[in-house]
Amino acid sequence: MSEKVCGCGCSESRAAQFADLAPTLEKYAKVPGSLITILQKAQEIYGYLSPDAINYISEQTGIMPAKIYGVATFYAQFRLEPIGKYLIMLCKGTACHVNGADMIEEAICEHLEIADGETTEDGIFTLNNVACLGCCSLAPVMMVRSADGDETYGNLTKDKVKDILDEIRKKAEVTA
């Protein structure tokens, strides 16, 4: 029997392609109720859930791809598209809303020329509106997630948010 190949047509075997996910699958693939945990791990490793990843998880767990899609699209955390190096999580909680989160969103969208859920052309930023980060006393707030960890910024203003984004972009360009 020929070895399974990945969807892009390359000859790399699936097991090698998803080697980083192997320890997670080994631990959880046959444990009932672990799908969300597996998807979280996969997203943590690959940044998003690609069709390939979903099919692979399906093969390994025996859960139908349709069901995995069902779960992945139900929860706000899961993404089916790749994201930028820096994920901007803009808080749209009640306190942030009352303190002008919409204004901050406008400023970010205008400055980066993207809308909620989109990624900048240079692949540096993705904007995601989130329900509440729980830093309500510092509203409006955003959290920026990257390989360096999570950084939270509070008491945002239109100008402040632009400065923060410029600084991150500068840093990203230097390291790139």
Partner: peptide, 11 residues
């Protein structure tokens, strides 16, 4: 799973 936007006592 403190989901209520505007509450952060559990956190």
């Amino acid at each position: 799973d403190e989901g209520d936007p505007g509450a952060f006592m559990d956190r």
